[in-house]
Amino acid sequence: MPHKCTKCGREYKDGSTEILRGCASCGGKKFLYVKEEEINKDVLEEKSIEEIADESHEEVLEVVEPTVSKKREVEMYDRVETIRIVSPGSYELNLEKMAKSDERIVSVGKEGSYIIDLMSMAKEEPKKKRAKKR
């Protein structure tokens, strides 16, 4: 079944991925499923899409903006790496993470490339060792 924008009534074909970015004409984010044979019902009967929605009891589809890629640059405290090699000979140290644990993750370049020191992660926490000795 095709969709119709609830704001301006623009039609979209069944299975159209265009609507995921919002209506191309008015930028509307809400769409209604309309039966093929009733596609022009709103114009013929001079009703708004909302009224049609009430009549057909179809659920209005709301497109939600993807929020994942909004936060591009990750803050220092949020980073996973302890050491970042910005370029050869240039390093950034994540002191907060270094203070918290012995885990060493090295990030190479800008973002998304990591070298993980598994041995550093296999070590027992120093606090626990002391507790065991007692």
Binding site: V68, S69, V80, I105, L118, M121, A122
Partner: peptide, 23 residues
């Protein structure tokens, strides 16, 4: 690319978590 970078970061945290469980 954006998605891949996020996946890489989460995967790195995942390794740390796996090692934590092992410990």
């Amino acid at each position: 690319k954006d998605e891949a970078i996020i996946r890489a970061r989460e995967a790195t945290e995942g390794v740390a978590e796996a090692m934590h469980w092992l410990r």
